[in-house]
C-alpha cells in the first residue's frame, strides 16, 4: 500500500501538483488518469522520489519515504520496479544484461540462477530468443516488454508504469495491460499506472484517480466512471464522438 498525503510540486512558482492525497492498494492495479499535461508523470516522479515534492509525504507501507535520507531511500528502492514512458533500457547492454542488471547489483544469486530468472521474466512478457539483441534492435512494443521484464526481475513489491502502452497498437496495448495486471495479482504487488488510454481504464482500472490540472478531481473504480456525473471526467472519458453517441 502506498499513500500520498497533501503533495504539492511547483515549477518556477507554478503549482503543477496541488494538494494531492490518495492511496494505492496492494494487489490492485491503481490507475492515475488525466489528459496530457495534467501532471501524471510529475506526480509519479514525486512518489518514487525522482522529484522532491515541495510539500507533503509519501508512505510506502507506513514508511515515510519523503523524510528518509538517501541510504534509507535506496533500501526502499530495491523493492520497486519502474517502467518509464520511453522504456529507459540501458543502450550499452543487451536485453539479457538489462534484465539481469538489478540482479547483478542487488542479489547474491549464482550466474545460473540469475540467467534462469532472466529467462523466466522474458518468457513472462512473451519475449523469447532475443537475449542477445540490443535495445536499438527491438520494436517499440518489444522494448516496453523488455523494460517490464527488467522492472519485475528482482521481485518488486511496488511497480510503477508511466504510460505502459503509449505508442502501441490497440492489441499489443491490451496484451501489455493484461500482463501488468496479471503480474500484480500473481505477486501481490502495489501497482500504479499512469495512462490516458480509456481502453486500459476499462480493462484494468481496479482503482482510478482522475487528475485535472494538477489536482485529484475524482476517485473510484472503473464501474463508477461510466456513471459519474463529474463534468471534467465525462469530457475526458467521452472525448470521441463515437463514445458520446454510445453513452
Amino acid at each position: 500500500m502506498i499513500k500520498v498525503v497533501d503533495i504539492w510540486k511547483y515549477f518556477d512558482n507554478n503549482a503543477i501538483i496541488k494538494n494531492v492525497t490518495a492511496s494505492f492498494e496492494k494487489g490492485k492495479t491503481n490507475l492515475i488518469i488525466g489528459q496530457s499535461g495534467s501532471g501524471k508523470t510529475v506526480l509519479l516522479k514525486c512518489i518514487v522520489g525522482l522529484l522532491e515534492p515541495d510539500n507533503g509525504n509519501v508512505f510506502y507501507d507506513e514508511r515515510n519515504f519523503t523524510k528518509m535520507n538517501i541510504a534509507d531511500k535506496q533500501i526502499v528502492r530495491k523493492e520497486l520496479g519502474m517502467l518509464f514512458q520511453g522504456g529507459a533500457l540501458f543502450d550499452s547492454l543487451n536485453i539479457e544484461e538489462n534484465v539481469m542488471f538489478p540482479l547483478n547489483m542487488f542479489t547474491k544469486y549464482t550466474k545460473e540462477e540469475k540467467l534462469e530468472r532472466v529467462n523466466f521474466c522474458l518468457k513472462r512478457v512473451n519475449l523469447g530468443n532475443i537475449n542477445h539483441l540490443y535495445p536499438s534492435e527491438l520494436s517499440g512494443g518489444m522494448k516496453k516488454r523488455a523494460a517490464i521484464a527488467r522492472a519485475i526481475a528482482n521481485n518488486p513489491k511496488y511497480l510503477f508504469c508511466d504510460e505502459p502502452n503509449s505508442g502501441l497498437d490497440p492489441k499489443t496495448a491490451i496484451i501489455i495491460d493484461n500482463l501488468i495486471r496479471e503480474i500484480t495479482k500473481e505477486y501481490n504487488i502495489t501497482t500504479i499506472i499512469n495512462t490516458h488510454d480509456m481502453n486500459s481504464v476499462m480493462e484494468i482500472g481496479d482503482n482510478v484517480v482522475f487528475m485535472y490540472s494538477g489536482e485529484v478531481w475524482w476517485k473510484g473504480t472503473r464501474e463508477d466512471i461510466l456513471h459519474s456525473s463529474n463534468k471534467e471526467l465525462n469530457s475526458f472519458v467521452y472525448a470521441s464522438e463515437l463514445l458520446k453517441k454510445l453513452k
Binding site: Q74, R77, M82, F84, A88, F106
Partner: peptide, 12 residues
C-alpha cells in the same frame, strides 16, 4: 533518455 532515472529508481 531517463536511463539515469532508471538507475536511481532501482536504488543505484
Amino acid at each position: 533518455t531517463e536511463q539515469i532515472d532508471a538507475l536511481e529508481v532501482m536504488g543505484v
